[in-house]
């Protein structure tokens, strides 16, 4: 805990950078995982599953 505090939270500059970097990775993680869930649930019904037949 102390390491996290000293490296990330102690100085405002490091804190701001940590917030922006973690926001980026959090967004990517949520986005990619929800898209995977959605595509798995609806496999075979989506356009990208059938478009191979028409190209």
């Amino acid at each position: 805990m102390k390491v996290i505090y000293n490296t990330l939270f102690k100085r405002t500059s490091a804190y701001a950078v940590a917030i922006m970097a973690s926001a980026f990775f959090f967004e990517r993680a949520i986005d990619v995982s929800s898209n995977t869930i959605y595509d798995t649930i609806n496999k075979g019904k989506l356009w990208k599953d059938i478009k191979g037949k028409y190209e």
Partner: peptide, 12 residues
């Protein structure tokens, strides 16, 4: 098939 909470429309 699109009735579920997470179910997409059937594009075919």
């Amino acid at each position: 098939t699109h009735k579920g909470l997470f179910s997409s429309l059937d594009h075919q």
